[in-house]
């Protein structure tokens, strides 16, 4: 069985796919804008909520935490939680919205032979735009808390981090979009998984806790550990990255891409019947 547009047949598959993808790039940008507009429409503060929400959450957590552990500084811990929350949000919004990436685009998918990657990339780009808005607040808060100690050359790594984040999240979104379309229960399971991941990741959990020998397994099996380290090192501490975090991150990225490509090739366009 085959479907071939004869005029495209002379191009290899990868080039054909790239050409199709490029021809629909306007749609991708438009969907990103549309998702952002829908999210903040009729709100007074608009996209400022991208910063305010995690900041307020961090202050609440830090206040409670400081009350429990008297010696902790509220502000330093708030900055720690804030950076962790913003990076975790980047991951969790991608996972949650990724599950609906294809289903919410069913109108488009049933209209024309549009590459699915357009709709999957849309989720990642939307999360990254939100992240960039939150980043302004993060840099401001961390500069105040650290008295400017974090404002150094290591901040040049932030754009690189965003590239790595895109490489990390896109395969997750691809996998979640396929699994989410095929199995509707996954939405609830992933929500539980995400909460568990939040608790065992150094979002509000102090980083040194995971270095205890009996908890090191959580560090090895959790991709968010290097992910959060790569964000906090330059943004909160003004440090360059450690090699072990970079290597761990790229191992996770390679594994996730292999899984995403396998999942995409396994279901192909047949997934259109499930959405």
């Amino acid at each position: 069985m085959s479907y071939v547009n004869v005029q495209d047949r002379r191009l290899p598959f990868a080039l054909r796919y790239a050409a199709d993808f490029l021809s629909y790039r306007h749609l991708c940008w438009n969907l990103v804008g549309s998702a952002l507009r829908a999210r903040f429409r009729r709100t007074q503060l608009g996209i400022l909520w991208a910063t305010l929400q995690p900041l307020a959450f961090s202050l609440m957590i830090a206040t409670v935490w400081a009350g429990l552990r008297n010696k902790e500084s509220v502000w330093e811990f708030a900055a720690y939680v804030f950076t962790g929350t913003v990076a975790f949000e980047l991951f969790s919004t991608s996972v949650q919205n990724g599950q609906d990436a294809l289903m919410s685009a069913s109108g488009f998918i049933r209209q024309a032979r549009i590459p699915f990657l357009i709709f999957q990339l849309r989720v990642v780009l939307t999360s990254l735009v939100m992240f960039m808005c939150a980043l302004v607040g993060v840099l401001l808060v961390t500069a105040i808390v650290t008295h400017g100690a974090n404002l150094g050359p290591a901040l040049m790594l932030v754009p690189v981090f965003m590239g790595i984040a895109a490489l990390f999240m896109l395969p997750i979104v691809i996998i979640m979009s396929i699994v989410g379309a095929l199995y509707r229960d996954v939405k609830y399971i992933s929500m539980l998984g995400e909460r568990a991941l939040f608790l065992v990741s150094p979002v509000m959990l102090p980083r040194d806790v995971l270095e205890q020998p009996h908890l090191q397994i959580l560090e090895v099996l959790n991709p968010l550990v290097p992910f959060l380290d790569l964000f906090r090192d330059p943004v909160l501490y003004g440090n360059f990255w450690e090699a072990r975090d970079v290597i761990a991150m790229f191992v996770w990225i390679a594994a996730l891409w292999a899984l995403a490509i396998f999942a995409s090739m396994s279901v192909g366009r047949k997934i259109v019947f499930a959405i």
Binding site: M1, S2, Y3, V4, N5, V6, Q7, L27, N30, S34, R37, A38, R41, G107, F108, I109, R110, Q111, A112, R113, G268, R269, K270, V272, F273
Partner: peptide
């Protein structure tokens, strides 16, 4: 249009395709 995959058989199309299958796709109500 290449939207639905076939169980068997072939479809060959020579030409740039345009579809008018669902009019409201891409609209934002607000």
């Amino acid at each position: 249009a290449g939207v639905y995959p076939l169980a068997s058989g072939d479809i060959h199309v020579s030409g740039r395709i345009g579809t008018l299958l669902e009019l409201g796709v891409g609209f934002e109500d607000e």
